[in-house]
Amino acid sequence: MPRTTTVSLDRAGARARLKEAHLYLSAAELLDSGGAAENKVAGSNAIMAGIAAADAICGLVLGERSSGDDHSQAIGLIRKATHPSTKAANSLKRLLTQKTPVQYGADAISASEAADLIRWARDIVLEADEKDRF
């Protein structure tokens, strides 16, 4: 059974995670439209960007982030921290579904799949930027 837990994440920590999210996203976008290896690395960086941005959102709004093995807990927290009309929770769910095959699998991913991962990460980063403005 997955262990679920949260840890405190203050505003400074959340802003640090947001900066990491931007760096991961920038790295993903640099590799976008490359070959098989570039697509896989771009996708992996996009996933890391989304996770870091989700942590930032949760830290900025709730003062905590998920640190357990249960990805559904992270999705639940971001749902709690965002308005239902935003894309962040669904985008995080999509990224987390792809985390294991993209980051640990041997199969290549297409440029289209990498672009989807980048788009979903961008949704979460943009939401985190909005939360950071308040």
Rank of each mutant, 00 (worst) to 15 (best):
D32K: 13
M48F: 11
G13D: 01
T5Y: 02
Y24S: 11
A89M: 05
S110Y: 04
P2Q: 04
A53F: 04
S44K: 05
E64I: 12
G68A: 10
D116I: 10
D123M: 05
S33P: 00
A56I: 07
A106L: 05
T97S: 11
S85F: 03
S67V: 12
V41E: 08
G68P: 06
A108T: 10
T4C: 04
T100C: 00
L18H: 05
G35W: 02
P84D: 12
R17V: 00
D32M: 11
R17E: 15
K131R: 15
E20P: 03
I47W: 06
Y24N: 13
I78P: 12
P101W: 04
S44C: 06
N45G: 01
G63M: 08
C58H: 02
G43I: 02
E113F: 03
T6S: 11
S112P: 00
W120Q: 10
Q73A: 14
A28K: 03
D129L: 14
K131Y: 10
H83P: 00
S33F: 06
S72A: 14
H71N: 07
E130L: 14
L60R: 04
A37F: 06
E130W: 04
G59D: 05
A114E: 10
G76C: 00
A12C: 00
R17Y: 10
A114N: 08
S85A: 12
E29T: 09
L126S: 13
L60S: 04
F134Q: 10
K131L: 07
S8M: 06
T86I: 00
S112Q: 13
L23F: 08
S33G: 07
D107K: 09
Q73N: 14
R79L: 07
I47D: 08
G68N: 08
K99C: 06
V125Q: 05
L30G: 03
L9Y: 05
A121P: 06
I75E: 15
S33R: 12
A49Y: 09
A88G: 12
L31S: 03
G50Q: 02
V102N: 04
P2N: 05
D123S: 12
D10K: 10
A37E: 08
S112M: 08
M48H: 15
I78Y: 10
L77T: 04
I75M: 08
I124S: 04
R15D: 08
A111R: 07
A12W: 02
V41W: 06
A108Q: 10
A114F: 10
G13C: 05
S110F: 01
S112D: 15
G68T: 05
G59Y: 02
R17I: 03
A114Q: 07
S72Y: 03
L77Q: 03
D32R: 14
L25C: 08
